[in-house]
Design a protein around this nucleic acid. Sequence first.
DNA 1: AAATATTTTTAGTCTTGTCTAAAAATAAAT
DNA 2: ATTTATTTTTAGACAAGACTAAAAATATTT
Lengths: 222, 222
Amino acid sequence: MFTSSEENYLKAIYHLGITSNKGVSTNAIAKRLRTKASSVTDMVKKLADKNVLVYRKYQGVSLTKEGNKTAANIIRKHRLWEVFLVEKLNFNWDEVHDVAEQLEHIKSPKLINELDALLGFPKYDPHGDPIPDNEGNLDQIEKSLLATLTINEFGICVGVHDSSSTFLQFLDKQKIALGQEITVIEKEDFDGSMTIKINNKKISISNKIANNLYIQKVQNGQ
Amino acid sequence: MFTSSEENYLKAIYHLGITSNKGVSTNAIAKRLRTKASSVTDMVKKLADKNVLVYRKYQGVSLTKEGNKTAANIIRKHRLWEVFLVEKLNFNWDEVHDVAEQLEHIKSPKLINELDALLGFPKYDPHGDPIPDNEGNLDQIEKSLLATLTINEFGICVGVHDSSSTFLQFLDKQKIALGQEITVIEKEDFDGSMTIKINNKKISISNKIANNLYIQKVQNGQ
DNA sequence: AAATATTTTTAGTCTTGTCTAAAAATAAAT
DNA sequence: ATTTATTTTTAGACAAGACTAAAAATATTT
Ligand SMILES: [Mn+2]
Ligand SMILES: [Mn+2]
Ligand SMILES: [Mn+2]
Ligand SMILES: [Mn+2]
């Protein structure tokens, strides 16, 4: 079907296409895949021939319906494997990404369906990212960056924006994990840092941290 | 470290080297990997440069200590994944090989060690083949081809020589599985077929079948 | 031992995916 | 509206891994 390299391009374009409604630029793809723009142009032509994306010279690319589904399926595999590594193989959430990058390219529909079942059909991966279903649909929950909350607002920590291992290890050190309740106590105008209550303790976090934590606001406020 | 292609060559040479004490021939490798002799020559030179095998023109190749260990490690991964697929993901023993061929190339020491633990440190794969330990050692049990047993000899079915899906599916149909006791009732000189007792039933099997089933003879005969 | 057959190697080509350097198109600045 | 800067594409090259066809070495027959 598709080579690992082709799959990586599709995945990159999928992720970059979520934000922008315009075509995804050659340079953006090159940057994300740590490759050169010229390589991207070559590959993009090949993928256009395979009808998974449309490409207009100098105008960037966008995935077709089929390309979108293919990309979502790779992401589905990536995230399911991440759940497996954490839930079954005692990996920490900062250790899973690189291995999942390899496992996502394994070809076997039965494998991934059975894995899904073994894990109890999880809806989110260890970083709080939604797992697409077999059709490529994923349910988007209402979540906000912690930095956007105002004083006294609170909610559940449901995801990370940056999932680099340095950030995740930092969160481990601060005992911040998904599922925990976070309340905004104070916000500093000067540097955007805030004091939050978590685990019944007050801690201070920088603006950069607050901009990388997703919170699901609690509706029926107490 | 090694590419998937290099790993497949090492594995092939390992398997072919077990029987012969001489160098493994270019043609034998080509046949096993369904490639051409000229391709083998190229690759074999590259692997010799990497010190995993010794190559003398026209004399075939043999693995070095390091090559042997590398090959055994790939086989360890292959067989552990096969156990995983059968034990955890409801695969039948005739469905696992092709997926394991892909999974064996995933690079992550932690992954394979944790998988080993999850499975309870199995010693044999679903086809009765031994799983090498981390050092590449594997315990060889005493086993004989069913065809070599004489009348009234009996033992436990512990492995298959041919693990093609057609053969495995045939065994399923005949309700022959690993772990079952088999007793030789009768042998026909004419075609080498035999009548055996299994599951308290007598069935007749051809010489070809008997030459592909491994039996561990029971010592303390009853 | 010479002739024939088989195996193995060499030489040259191809595809995939990458790269650099230069040319062309588009965007931003004056 | 030009000029300048940035982005994108083209052209040409390279490494990995495979292939075909031909040459060379080894094995087998006669
Ligand atoms: Mn990931
Ligand atoms: Mn993730
Ligand atoms: Mn196998
Ligand atoms: Mn096996």
